[in-house]
Amino acid sequence: MRRLILLVLLFVSLSLEAQEDGFRVTEESYNDQSVEMADAMRANGKIYVVVAVIGVIFAGIVIYTISVDRKVRKLEKEVFEEKP
């Protein structure tokens, strides 16, 4: 158990040390406009998000309707084409 704790602490200290002389995340990196992010999804009052949600719902309904359509076609084949 002690060894395990020691090992964990060791790793934590390692990562801390690594951060000290490596790259650091600061407040500034949140405002760095030179890096491109998915800003379009947050622009214009986030209307794109709503469009995406509506698109997903519509796609779901269409896929469901297609599956119903196919099931009916299967039934039609069974009923109308296999008459004795």
Binding site: T65, D69, V72, R73, V79, F80
Partner: peptide, 17 residues
């Protein structure tokens, strides 16, 4: 029209049955 045709096809299948 699509939904109406699905309705109609279900009706005609059940009528045939």
């Amino acid at each position: 029209v699509w939904i109406a045709t699905i309705q109609f096809r279900i009706r005609s299948v059940s009528r045939a049955l």
